[in-house]
C-alpha cells in the first residue's frame, strides 16, 4: 500500500514530492503527541514558575535564595540534557528496583513510559524558562504603580490582584507564546529517547522507503504551520490584552 504514495524508493536519487506527502500523512498522525508534549509543560511551567517568580520578586526569605541559585544553574543546561539525564535517572533505578518489586517492573515496561519521561523533562525545563519570563513580567511593572496602590490604601495582595498582575500579564502573554513556540520546537528533542512524535513519526515513514530528506521536509512543514498558528494567536491575544 505504501507504494501507492511513494513509488520510487531509495534507488531513485531525484527528489520526490509524493514521498513528502506520504511522510506528511504518517507524521500528522502524531500531531497530538507533540501538542501534549508542549501544552502540558507550558501549563505546568506557568503553574510552577509563577510562584517561583513571585518569591524572588518579593524576596521571600530562604525560598528566594534557593530558587535564585537553582534557576541560575539550571538555566545553563541545554534541553537535550534534561531529557537524557531524566530518562536515565528514572529508568535506571526502576531497572534495579524491578528485581525486588513487581510494581517497579510493571512501571519500567509500561507502555509509552518514554513519553511520560519526555513530559517530565520538558516540564522541568519549561518551569525554569517560564519562571524567568514571569520574573521579568513582574519587573516590567514600574514601582510607581505599587506606590500609587499603597497611597490609596490597597494591601499588597489587593495591589497584586487588581493592578500589578493584570499589567504583568499583558507583558507576559507574548513572551509566553514565544516560550510555547520554543516548547513545540524543543519537544522534537524527545526523539532521542524514542518518543513517537511528529519528527519520529516522519522518521518511521522514512525507514520504509529510505526517503529521509522528504520525511524531514514533511516534519518541518508541520512544525512550521504549528508555530505560525501560535504566533498568529499571540498577535490576537496581545491586541486584546493591550489597553492602548
Amino acid at each position: 500500500m505504501f507504494e501507492r504514495f511513494c513509488r520510487k524508493g531509495a534507488e531513485s536519487v531525484a527528489f520526490d514530492v509524493s514521498c513528502v506527502w506520504f511522510s506528511f500523512k504518517v507524521a500528522i498522525r502524531y500531531l497530538h503527541v507533540t501538542l501534549f508534549l508542549s501544552v502540558i509543560p507550558l501549563a505546568l511551567g506557568v503553574a510552577l514558575g509563577t510562584p517561583i517568580a513571585v518569591c524572588r520578586k518579593f524576596r521571600v526569605r530562604i525560598a528566594s535564595q534557593v530558587a535564585g541559585a537553582l534557576i541560575t544553574f539550571l538555566k545553563g543546561i541545554p534541553l537535550v540534557l534534561y531529557v537524557l539525564i531524566l530518562n536515565f535517572m528514572i529508568l535506571k533505578p526502576l531497572d534495579k528496583l524491578a528485581e525486588y518489586s513487581v510494581w517497579a517492573d510493571k512501571l519500567r515496561l509500561m507502555d509509552k513510559i518514554e513519553y511520560y519521561i519526555g513530559i517530565i523533562a520538558l516540564s522541568a525545563y519549561a518551569t525554569v524558562v517560564i519562571s524567568e519570563t514571569m520574573r521579568s513580567a513582574l519587573n516590567s511593572v514600574p514601582d510607581g504603580q505599587y506606590e500609587a496602590c499603597f497611597s490609596i490604601g490597597l494591601t499588597r495582595g489587593q495591589a497584586l490582584r487588581s493592578i500589578v498582575i493584570p499589567q504583568a500579564l499583558a507583558f507576559a502573554v507574548p513572551v509566553l507564546c514565544n516560550n510555547f513556540i520554543g516548547l513545540i520546537k524543543g519537544s522534537s528533542i524527545v526523539y532521542v529517547i524514542g518518543v513517537l512524535d511528529i519528527l519520529n513519526g516522519a522518521m518511521t515513514s522514512a525507514q520504509i522507503n529510505y526517503r529521509f530528506l522528504e520525511a524531514y521536509i514533511a516534519a518541518a512543514l508541520i512544525y512550521w504551520v504549528l508555530c505560525i498558528s501560535v504566533e498568529r494567536a499571540s498577535w490576537i491575544l496581545e491586541k486584546r490584552f493591550k489597553k492602548r
Partner: peptide, 25 residues
Amino acid sequence: ISFIRGTPVIIQMFLVYYGFPLLLL
C-alpha cells in the same frame, strides 16, 4: 526567517545534511 524560527534546529540540521548535497549536485 519564518521557516527558521518555526522549525526545530534538529530538523534544519538534517535538511541541510540531506538536502545540500542534492542541491549542489
